[in-house]
Design a protein around this nucleic acid. Structure first.
Lengths: 107, 107
DNA sequence: TACACCAATAACCGACGAGTTATGTGTGAG
DNA sequence: CTCACACATAACTCGTCGGTTATTGGTGTA
């Protein structure tokens, strides 16, 4: 039962794969060929990365003739944001607890 | 030349390691022993994870007698937040570009 | 001083994953 | 129909990394 943010962290941990995703975010819709051209790895490697990104929900594919276009699904990053703010929230509440404690000690 | 967010993604990609960090965020300062007790792995494994987290700047250690306390450094998550909002920003600007284009086409 | 305890390091092992080359599948072009 | 192209899949290699046990270093305790 992998949590959503778990998949995101694992998917985005690889630099090559993350670079592909960043490219899709920056420049929008891209063919596999275009992505391969700047990825620095072979076409099958790129296809595999795209497969992983797709399974993580981070990209969508669109078939057009004999080429496949991929585009970033930015909404998929939500669990990452949630996780981060949750961590921040924990920190906040612990700080509040400390504050409360200090306040009570003061009285 | 690994970017700061690269180290974060790689560091937080491992579930066990991330669980340790989450624990430190939730419950604050913890000894290695306490962390080991709930980690589900051996003490050396936990120490190794803490070493990685420390090198990533995500935790700090504090020696107290013969035990070592670790605590989360929440500020270290900043590059992660930056990266995320940067991706969102790319998306926004592409959307704006499209909007501009449509506006110009409309005229 | 001797001993127990806590954490870190060493040395090793197995699995997973990112990369490769080779091949398969489908689609437009000639 | 045939061929070339775009992409996906297969099969394999190899490095990395998370795990283990064994050991060392350092600190409180009897």
């Amino acid at each position: 039962m992998p949590q959503p943010h778990d998949i995101l962290f694992r998917t985005l941990a690889d630099p090559t794969r993350r670079a592909i995703f960043e490219r899709l975010c920056r420049d929008g819709d891209q063919t596999v060929r275009a992505l391969t051209a700047q990825a620095g790895v072979s076409q099958p490697a790129v296809s595999k990365h795209l497969g992983v990104l797709k399974r993580a929900g981070l990209v969508r594919d669109r078939h057009e003739g004999r080429q496949t276009h991929y585009s970033a699904q930015l909404g998929a990053l939500a669990p990452l944001i949630d996780w981060t703010s949750q961590m921040a929230g924990f920190w906040e509440s612990r700080f509040d607890d400390l504050e409360d404690l200090l306040k009570r000690m003061d009285q």
